[in-house]
Design a protein around this nucleic acid. Structure first.
Lengths: 228, 228
DNA sequence: CGCCCTACGATTGTCTAACAAGTACACACG
DNA sequence: CGTGTGTACTTGTTAGACAATCGTAGGGCG
């Protein structure tokens, strides 16, 4: 029994479950019974039901009619869908930022944080990496686009929680490509930035797919040239 | 008392309310009390509550804690946010379609339906217009992008329900621009298509803003040249 | 011995009833 | 006239209950 209470009991429970899913405590396909959730948080069943339905709406949990809610199991095809959606959104974001030569401070800061990482823990790069990409999207100043991207980020984090030993890409490479992206934006080269982003996300996508048991596409390979 | 029952009572009620909002039967800021909804559909209050919360999650209704849910009131700034979001999404969609020279059949059909419209009712153009744009997005084959665009379409329809006498743009102009967009896609000219779309949506956006009492931006003006 | 059908347990969908808590508005008081 | 209080309305949450449905295990039949 965990006593939580912030603004709304439902919201608090949903938050807690969300955190437990992201941390990997609740693995994919783990069943979440309404009664079970209700008793573990010491609330009534309708309250637990509301929290579960909120998470289902977010896409973190899945459930059919009359069936127990389960932690979403994102297969390789979902990973591709998510990363392609990211690419679609961010490509256009980069073009717009480039046309106004807007380089968000927060993005620079996030990438510096990646550069400062010397720890071997590969999981530590996820947070500043997400912050880098999110800050670019947020720089557009469009509420709805930011919200959409946020939901994608949630699903990406869900994917990440599945692959524990992710040593997919070298931190140095990530940081270098981010840097290059910012330079292209500053130079007003939107097309080039969009293309580099496609490679950047495509590589991460196919490597992630490969570690999840899917078949990696050709984008998984490192680029032959990486002119900084 | 309206008896409805399809797959789920909650879903059925939510659908009905959604339709009533879109039709304009429920105007902006109209209050929807849980008890009121419950009695009018002859269901229990928790059921009505669930339906209302579903619509709140969709953005059709808004409500604060302990306050009655109301039909969302989209002001000029929201309209700009929505239409800019559309432009961000669709610009990139056009580029991708152009790079593979993919012209969706459904888009062609939808635009033909617009051309066939000779009725004076300006509201009839909304449905095929939405279908045109939606079919372009769906042609990408990305579940998440399609879902995001769907929620934007819902908000656009909500805006439309507010302006009854919308005679914002000439049907012929809309149809001609759509035609030009398809031609640019077929020619692989993604940049040009994206730019034309920006003008197309920008004009609709600022005219809509103007009719809602906001101050129209310069995009409201007709283009000086429209080479078909 | 294997397959299909049935029956049971578990779980969700929905309802009734009720109390607590918060908001908003009106009225009275200073 | 401004402020404070109180009351009515609404929402948040709980409890218990029943029907509908799904999954599974077991028994009957070929």
């Amino acid at each position: 029994m965990s006593r939580v209470s912030a603004v709304s009991i439902v919201e608090a429970i949903a938050s807690d479950i969300r955190a437990r899913v992201f941390s990997g405590e609740l693995p994919a396909l783990h069943a979440l019974t309404e009664t079970e959730v209700a008793s573990s948080y010491d609330v009534a069943r309708p309250t637990a039901k509301a929290a579960i339905e909120k998470l289902v709406a977010e896409g973190l949990l899945v459930r059919g009619v009359h069936k127990t809610a389960r932690v979403a199991d994102l297969g390789p095809e979902s990973v591709r869908d998510i990363y392609l959606a990211r690419a679609y959104l961010e490509s256009e974001v980069l073009r717009r930022l480039a046309s106004s030569r807007t380089v968000p401070d927060e993005a620079v800061r996030a990438n510096n944080d990646i550069a400062a990482l010397k720890t071997g823990a590969p999981l530590d790069v996820v947070e500043p990496d997400m912050r880098f990409h999110t800050s670019l999207v947020d720089a557009l100043g469009n509420q709805r686009i930011s919200k959409m991207y946020l939901s994608l980020v949630g699903e990406v984090r869900l994917c990440m929680s599945r692959v524990q030993s992710l040593h997919l890409l070298d931190t140095t490479l990530i940081q270098a490509e981010h840097q290059k992206l910012l330079e292209l934006i500053a130079a007003g080269k939107g097309d080039a930035a969009a293309q580099l982003l496609d490679e950047h996300l495509g590589r991460a996508r196919e490597r992630l797919v490969a570690t999840m048991g899917g078949e990696a596409g050709p984008e998984a390979e490192l680029p032959s040239k990486l002119t900084g």
